[in-house]
Structure formats: structure tokens, C-alpha cells
């Protein structure tokens, strides 16, 4: 564990609490992509299968359980409790275009051709692009509630912080995880446009609005 990874994980935790806070206080999941949230459930379930056969640390296990449970709970809130506030007509990204290629990539790029390792690779690739339905939705509506943008920023910062973590680990432990690093750089890259608007507008106290 190092400072960057810890900060990244905390940022990930924060993003989930911000999202829950947004849903509970506005009693609405308007502006949140159900598809992206469903993809995160798939990401966590496929990646954290090793809960059953590999123990890393208490921290690691507790975080894994939290991410699985919270992502399922968010899905429940969107699907049942606040269902009328979700508008599927603007959440139209075709996730087949993400699931298919990620699966094929995981068959090609993995550390061992075994069930759990292929699913692990799949989850890494899928996480990298899982935000696309959400960003696509943002693009369509052209604006977002401020709290939603804080959620997205925390989520983006999480993977961005993993990049210095990997650099640090390379120098201190000689460890390189090419699959996670490549996917992580792609994932962070997808946020660049969003970050630009977030830093130049939202953090200056303006509303998140994309130029028409």
C-alpha cells in the first residue's frame, strides 16, 4: 500500500458516497446512467471472485465487499425505489459494443488462461470503458447537476491516482501490471474532456454546461 493507491481508493469510496447522497437527498437518479451503474456491478462481481479463494488483507476484503454491495444497492435504488426518476430514453448507449470487445480482449490478454484470470482481465477492460454510457448521456443532455459532476470527478480521480501508484510500485517493488496500466491510462483518458469542463466551470462555481 502506498499513498497514491490509498488516496485513489478513498476517492473511489468518496465517489460512491457522493452518488448515494445525491440520490437520497434529491430523491432522484436523474442524470445518472443506469447502464454505467450496471456495468460497475459486472466489473466488481467478475473482479472480486477471488474473495472466495485468495486473501490479501482485511482492508482489501472489506473494500471489495463494500464495492460489490454498494453498487448492487445503487442498482436497486435506480431500478425500484426511484424508478420513475430514471429516463431510459436518454440512456441509449449500446453496451453490447463494450461487453463484446472487452470479452474478446480478455481472452487474448490475460495472465493465465483460466476462468478467474480471464474474468479478472475482462473486469479491468470493462471498468476502463464503463463510464462511456454516463458520459454519452451527459453529452446528450448537455448539462449536469453539480453533485453529479462531483461524483464523476471523484470517480475519475480514483483511477488517475492509480497511475502514480503504478510508477511508484515500479520503482519500489519492480512490479508492472501491463493489463491494469494500459486499461487504467485509457480509463483516465476518457475523463479528460470532462475534467476540463469540471475544472474550468464547476470548480469556479458555474453550472456544468457543455457548449451547444
Amino acid at each position: 500500500m502506498n499513498f497514491f493507491r490509498l488516496l485513489g481508493d478513498l476517492s473511489h469510496l468518496a465517489s460512491i458516497f457522493i452518488l448515494l447522497h445525491k440520490i437520497q437527498t434529491t430523491r432522484s437518479c436523474r442524470g445518472i446512467s443506469f447502464k454505467t451503474q450496471a456495468l460497475y456491478v459486472a466489473v466488481f462481481v467478475t473482479r472480486y471472485l477471488d474473495l472466495f479463494f485468495r486473501y490479501v488483507s482485511l482492508y482489501n476484503s472489506v473494500m471489495k465487499l463494500f464495492f460489490i454491495a454498494s453498487s448492487c444497492y445503487i442498482l436497486y435504488l435506480m431500478k425500484y425505489k426511484y424508478r420513475p426518476t430514471h429516463d431510459p430514453s436518454i440512456d441509449t448507449f449500446r453496451i453490447e459494443y463494450l461487453l463484446g470487445p472487452c470479452f474478446v480482449l480478455s481472452l487474448i490478454f490475460n495472465y493465465k488462461f483460466s476462468f478467474s484470470e480471464i474474468l479478472w482481465s475482462f473486469s479491468i477492460f470493462l471498468e476502463a470503458v464503463a463510464i462511456l454510457p454516463q458520459l454519452f448521456m451527459l453529452q446528450r443532455t448537455g448539462e449536469a447537476e453539480t453533485i453529479t459532476t462531483h461524483y464523476l470527478a471523484a470517480l475519475g480521480v480514483y483511477r488517475a491516482l492509480y497511475i502514480p501508484n503504478w510508477i511508484y510500485r515500479y520503482f519500489t517493488e519492480g512490479l508492472v501490471d501491463p493489463i491494469a496500466v494500459t486499461a487504467g491510462i485509457v480509463q483516465t483518458g476518457l475523463y479528460l474532456d470532462f475534467f476540463y469542463v469540471y475544472f474550468t466551470k464547476v470548480l469556479q462555481g458555474q453550472k456544468f454546461e457543455l457548449p451547444a
Binding site: 493507491r5 477471488d50 490479501v56 482489501n60 471489495k64 495472465y111 512490479l175
Partner: peptide, 10 residues
């Protein structure tokens, strides 16, 4: 290889 040492990141 990584598979043997396990994935210790989230």
C-alpha cells in the same frame, strides 16, 4: 508472474 503473486489492487 502477476497471476502467482495475485492481484492485490482494487
Amino acid at each position: 508472474p502477476l497471476e502467482e503473486q495475485g492481484h492485490d489492487e482494487l
